[in-house]
Simulated scan of single mutants.
Amino acid sequence: MKKVLLTITVFLSVVACKTNPFTGKSTFNMFPNSQIFPMAFAEYDQFLTDNKVVTGTSEAQMITNVGQKIASAAERWLNANGYPGYLKDYKWEYNLVQDETVNAWCMPGGKIVFYTGILPICQDETGIAVVMGHEVAHALADHGAQRMSAGMAQQIGAVAGNVAIKNEQWLNVFNQSYGVVSSVGVMLPFNRSHETEADRIGLQIMAIAGYNPDEAAELWKRMKARGGQAPPEFLSTHPSNDTRINNLTAWAPAAKQEAAKFGVTTFK
């Protein structure tokens, strides 16, 4: 059994690497697009069936228009940097859903939802572009598949520990601590790194699409002003508002420089 687990783990580490085109780094991803995209598309369609999709309004149209501009900017960047065809399996879709939750999300393959509750924070088209860039970036970087892969690896670790540890006392200690240690020490930092990466990639592609990257930090200042309790950053899946504001402010000049390579020097 130990040999089987070791073989599986080594095999997954070798075959599950994919390069993130925006960072050049190898990522841990066990799920090819051909496997995860159909599942995501089906789940997205079911979500739309079960929720109230807003159609025929200026806000709904703006969500679609901004999404198309951001996805187009991403494709321009990918084509210019040696990744033609990277998006061939993506099926972009942008929907506004009636829900007061202040949130937006993206499924693998480019299926995006904005809740109406986030629109007052966005305020305008550029604010929507900030959020849209972030969500599109999650799809571009395969963050959904990576998180599923990490969750599977976490489960393999738990099984391996239970197989390897024969002492009952130490096994109890392992089972009591593994979940907390692997979550706080590995999974939460992993998720936060994805949020930070999506912020940076999103800033870049929104600028290429013609939106002012300086507005990203302003949006997060508005998010912070909402108040409310948030867990300490090390116990959260997301960076703190202050961390995001500082990062986005520091990255905005580089995003403008990247946009200039595509002839974009003025912004909305």
Score class of each variant (00 low, 15 high):
Ala80Cys: 04
Thr64Cys: 03
Cys122Arg: 06
Thr49Asn: 04
Asp50Cys: 01
Lys166Ala: 02
Leu119Ser: 01
Ala73Lys: 11
Val163Asn: 03
Glu168Pro: 00
Ala71Phe: 09
Phe114Ile: 10
Gln155Met: 08
Ala73Cys: 09
Ile112Asn: 11
Trp105Gly: 06
Gly85Ile: 09
Val130Asp: 03
Asn95Tyr: 04
Met152His: 10
Ile121Val: 15
Glu59Trp: 09
Val53Pro: 05
Leu96Met: 12
Lys91Asp: 09
Thr64Tyr: 04
His138Ile: 08
Tyr86Val: 07
Met132Tyr: 04
Ala73Met: 13
Val102Pro: 10
Ala150Tyr: 02
Tyr44Glu: 07
Ile118Val: 15
Tyr44Val: 06
Tyr86Lys: 12
Gly82Pro: 11
Gln46Ser: 15
Asp142Trp: 12
Gln169Gly: 00
Ala153Pro: 04
Leu78Asn: 08
Tyr115Arg: 10
Tyr83Ser: 15
Asn103Gln: 09
Gly161Ile: 04
Glu135Phe: 01
Ile165Met: 10
Thr116His: 03
Cys122Glu: 08
Met132Ala: 01
Ala153Val: 13
Asp142Gln: 14
Lys52Cys: 02
Thr116Glu: 05
Met62Gln: 11
His134Val: 07
Val102Asp: 09
Ile121Asn: 08
His143Ser: 09
Thr57Asp: 02
Glu168Cys: 00
Phe47Thr: 11
Met152Asn: 05
Gly109Phe: 13
Gln154Trp: 06
Ala104Lys: 11
Asn81Gly: 08
Glu93Leu: 00
Met132His: 05
Tyr90Ser: 14
Tyr115Lys: 08
Arg76Gln: 15
Pro108Glu: 04
Val54Phe: 09
Ile112Ser: 03
Leu119Lys: 01
Asp89Arg: 01
Val113Cys: 14
Val113Asn: 14
Arg76Asn: 14
Asp99Trp: 02
Ile128His: 00
Ala42His: 06
Tyr83Leu: 07
Met62Asn: 03
Ala74Asp: 12
